[in-house]
Design a protein around this nucleic acid. Sequence first.
RNA 1: GGUCCCAUCGUCUAGUGGCCUAGGACGUGGCCCUCUCAAGGCUAAAACACGGGUUCGACUCCCGUUGGGACCGCCA
Length: 467
Amino acid sequence: MDVRVRFAPSPTGHLHIGGARTALFNWLFARNLGGKFVLRIEDTDTTRSTEEYIEAIIDGMKWLNLDWDEGPFRQTDRFNVYRSYVDRLISEGKAYYCYCTPEELEERRKKAQEQGADQKYDGRCRDLKEPPAGRPAAVRFRMPEYGTTVVDDLIRGKVAFENSVLEDMIILRSDGTPTYNFVVVVDDIDMKITHVIRGDDHLNNTPKQIHIYKAFGWEVPQFAHLPMILGADKTRLSKRHGATSVMAYKEMGYLPEALVNYLVRLGWSYGDQEVFSRQELVQHFSFDAVGKSAAVFNPEKLLWLNGQYIIKADPEKLAELVIPFLVKDRTIKEGQDIDMKWLAQAVVTLQERAKTLIELAAGLKYYIAEEIEIDPKAAEKFLKPEHLAYLKDLKELLSETQNFVAAEIEKAFHAVAEKHSTKLGSIAQPARVAMTGNTASPGMFELMEIFGRPKVMKRLSKVLGEN
RNA sequence: GGUCCCAUCGUCUAGUGGCCUAGGACGUGGCCCUCUCAAGGCUAAAACACGGGUUCGACUCCCGUUGGGACCGCCA
């Protein structure tokens, strides 16, 4: 049998970290087994779903490079289908009309809670002989009252539920729209889904859904319930814990490969390996190695991973990716012409120093900008009169070098150090402040080579007050 | 409150009854490298929630306690 899985987000918000991981595990499972990955938009809540969020979710999927084989399907396009399935259940006596209003139900629930009693629907419309006139009706599914339902889960094993705790849930609202627990089953059957891979928070819904499958005589798919992702306080990850939308990480200068790598290790492992290529992920992924316990989202480890991916990334590609951040930084103007070959060279010097594209852009600033600001503290420490004397000599030597390349530049530095009987560091630090305005940067020799002689001369002149 | 799930360093995890003096990674401290900052290398501190069983032997199996989480909607 061909494996078919789906990711079914509801468009009531952006694609968030938890949803992205669910999508990723579905994708990996499908790719590992050569199956199909379906994208389905669960927009039956017409009051909260928006077109913007559908776009946002698709953007997030694309950015993470999680391609789907079918869809996106939308449930709002399928209301007639659901309607006919509801009718079938009613005609077979497996569902019935309920005339209780939401307000009445709410009140009863509240009362039951206060008394510490069972909160489930009392079934008062279950066997109604005469429907009350003039009241809107919802449709409820008739749950079995006795027996046990076992969910056989790929991650958790067998989980048993007493049917007596299940209530007759509403499958069709009084406004004629169907509800989640019903449509999810109808869709999964219509779309021939073989494995339902979703968040742990759905485990309790699963027995209810199994009864719908059975009411129709359908085969129940395999389930895999993924553990939750928690915030630092161990509660479900939410806005309170900082950035949760996937696209926010794009804006913060993260690489999608790094986020994917981080997310997959939240719950899944392969021995001691931490960094995986796409191919390795697809090759090794299996639910056997998915853990059962919830995981705390750790931004620091994600940052480290991102740094690892930046180090390994192709400099030309990084140069492309960093452009929007340079624009945002106002280091360059939108659409400004820039020598990409040269930019890539500059990027190489910064790769192992930048953990995000934002940091990369910040480092690139002094390579590109005409004027730099000099940190007063740095100047105070490294631009004292004796330092300026070194820089004066350095400038002279550098103006005479044949080829303005790192090896030649290094010779000049050593010559100055020797002349003044001092260490290389006492020349390099002042030079660094003159070049970058700061005390930390890539190595001076390669930096100067990439700057080029004119820019180096200009900046030395400036600190020497020679304008 | 009811139902269900979960439980190894601060965090992510390896571990499927003897290989464990519990391994790796992030983070933290130290050292090395070094023109600064990184990167890299070495190193240190840091965990089997607790209590009972089962067993010749439990991190590993069973039960309970405790702790955490999820769900209990005419939301998904």
